[in-house]
């Protein structure tokens, strides 16, 4: 495992097709410890398929997914989570019938392997730790509100707190800022970035908001028609002719010429 020593996650020749259509073709990449990596590309380029393979919702047709050197391809999502891979979803998913803090407590209970306990009330378990996580995402004030009443941006924050419950090494974030306003987007990603730096977590995220990508990502990879067509820092990607053609267009619908 010499090559993957420094990387938290490594994809090797990842391939998946649906009914003869290649969704992801021979994708290889590495994510280093503490790296903030953006995956961009046109809709239908295979980003979600990639994510779903990494977190176990889909099994790849071929290729390896190495998490700290261990091949996790084909494992169930819950087992991958136990190895320290957290995930947030494009359409934020929380448990609507629970309060905000109960959402986080449920994750902590699972992390402590107490899911099958039948007797002592759950409400008292890990409450302090749950509050602490909520404080980190600035949601401690809403701890006892039903999560379904939250505004969408707040749901995303709660989801982040849930994803942090098992002290992940790697966080997969599928369009973390989808459905948020420009200001909120920056607020959320800034928060994630801060947590990442504090805790040394690596993050792989997809995003359509180029402002966010250019402002925060350490490195950017571009997927088009299932293939990895570019991998580099913001400047390299911005100047990449092929990426411009398949994805950016003229660039007039996002940031005014990022520096």
């Amino acid at each position: 495992m010499s090559a993957s020593d420094s990387s938290v996650l490594e994809l090797r020749g990842l391939t998946k097709s649906f009914g003869g259509v290649h969704a992801v073709r021979d994708v290889s990449l590495k994510i280093g410890k503490g790296e903030f990596l953006a995956m961009i590309g046109p809709n239908g380029a295979g980003k979600s398929t990639c994510f779903n393979m990494i977190n176990g919702q889909l099994a790849p047709d071929s290729g390896q997914i190495l998490c700290e050197g261990k091949n996790i391809a084909g494992l169930a999502p819950r087992d991958i989570w136990r190895l320290g891979v957290g995930r947030t979803f494009q359409v934020a998913a929380t448990f609507g019938s629970m309060t905000v803090i109960e959402n986080v407590q449920t994750a902590l209970i699972s992390h402590a392997r107490e899911t099958y306990r039948l007797w002592r009330p759950a409400a008292s378990r890990h409450r302090a730790r749950a509050l602490d996580l909520l404080r980190q995402v600035n949601m401690q004030g809403a701890a006892d509100r039903p999560s379904r009443e939250l505004a969408y941006g707040d749901v995303k924050r709660v989801e982040l707190a849930i994803a942090l419950a098992n002290d992940p090494k790697l966080l997969l974030m599928d369009e973390p800022t989808a459905g948020m306003g420009a200001g909120e987007r920056h607020g959320l990603i800034e928060l994630v970035k801060r947590l990442v730096v504090e805790r040394g977590i690596s993050v792989l995220f997809t995003e359509h908001s180029m402002d966010v990508v250019f402002a925060f990502a350490d490195r950017i990879v571009v997927l088009a028609r299932g293939r990895l067509i570019a991998d580099g820092d913001a400047t390299a990607i911005r100047d990449n002719e092929q990426v411009r053609e398949v994805y950016f267009g003229t660039g007039k619908t996002f940031a005014r010429a990022p520096a």
Partner: peptide, 21 residues
């Protein structure tokens, strides 16, 4: 108890529940 919470979690959002183990 935790079991009841896990059961409701699985009902509310199976995807999210699996993603927290």
């Amino acid at each position: 108890a935790p079991f009841g919470y896990a059961m409701r979690a699985g009902r509310d959002s199976p995807l999210r529940a699996e993603a927290i183990g």
